[in-house]
C-alpha cells in the first residue's frame, strides 16, 4: 500500500518539468551531485572533529564544549547545502531512487542519526560544564559520538551505493528484499 503510494508520488515528481530539466542537463545534474559530495568535507568534516574530540582523539587540550559550539555553525551550513542538493538529486531521479534499497537504508540511518544527535545535545547541555576540559567526554557521550561516526559512515556508504542497481526491482530478488526496496507488481 505505502509502496504503491510512493511509486505514484515518484512518478508524479518524475513527470514535472523541473525534474526532467535537471536529469537531462549534464552539467546541472553533475554539479548538484558534486556539491552534494563536496559538502561531505564541510558537514561531515566538522562532525568528525566534534565526535573525535568527544572520544579524545582530536584537540584533547581544547574545551569540548568550545569545539562542539564553534564547529556547529559551519557543520549546519554544510548540512543545509547537503540537504538541499540531496533533495534536488532525489527530485531529478525519483522513480529510480525511491526503489533503491540503499536509499531506503540511508534514510533510516539518517533518522537514527537525527535522534542520536538530539540525545547528544541533551547530554552535552546538561553536563558539559563539569567535564569539558577533560580530554575525553563521559561514557554516554562517547557512545553517542561513536554511534554518530558509525551512522554517518553508513550514510556515506549507502549513499554511494545508490548508484549501483544490484538489488533493483528489475533484478530477481527474494520477496522480503523486493518489499523492502518498494517494488510493486506491474
Amino acid at each position: 500500500m505505502i509502496n504503491e503510494m510512493l511509486v505514484q508520488f515518484a512518478e508524479w515528481l518524475y513527470a514535472t518539468g523541473g525534474s526532467r530539466a535537471i536529469e537531462e542537463s549534464f552539467y546541472l545534474y553533475n554539479w548538484i551531485e558534486t556539491t552534494h559530495v563536496l559538502t561531505i568535507m564541510v558537514c561531515l568534516g566538522m562532525l568528525a572533529f566534534i565526535d573525535l574530540r568527544m572520544l579524545g582523539y582530536a584537540l584533547p587540550n581544547v574545551s569540548a564544549s568550545t569545539i562542539a559550539d564553534r564547529l556547529n555553525v559551519p557543520m549546519m551550513i554544510g548540512f543545509a547545502l547537503m540537504f538541499i542538493t540531496g533533495l534536488l538529486l532525489f527530485y531529478a531521479k525519483p522513480v529510480y531512487t525511491n526503489q533503491s534499497i540503499w536509499f531506503r537504508i540511508k534514510m533510516v540511518l539518517l533518522v537514527v542519526a537525527f535522534f542520536n544527535a538530539i540525545r547528544f545535545h541533551r547530554h552535552m547541555k546538561a553536563s558539559a560544564s563539569t567535564w569539558c576540559n577533560e580530554p575525553r567526554a563521559p561514557f554516554n557521550l562517547r557512545v553517542s559520538a561513536a554511534l554518530s561516526l558509525g551512522l554517518w559512515a553508513g550514510v556515506v556508504t549507502t549513499g554511494r551505493l545508490i548508484a549501483y542497481d544490484w538489488y533493483h526491482c528489475y533484478r530477481d530478488l527474494p520477496g522480503w528484499l523486493s518489499a523492502a526496496a518498494g517494488c510493486v507488481a506491474e
Binding site: 564541510v42 568534516g45 568528525a48 572533529f49 564547529l71 559512515a153 554511494r160 551505493l161
Partner: peptide
C-alpha cells in the same frame, strides 16, 4: 561490492576527515 565499499565509500569517509581537518 568491494570496489564500491572499500574503494569508493572509504575514500569518501576519508574525504570527510580530510575536508574537516583542512577547514578547521
Amino acid at each position: 561490492g568491494v570496489y564500491a565499499t572499500f574503494g569508493q565509500s572509504l575514500h569518501l569517509m576519508a574525504l570527510a576527515v580530510l575536508g574537516g581537518s583542512v577547514l578547521v
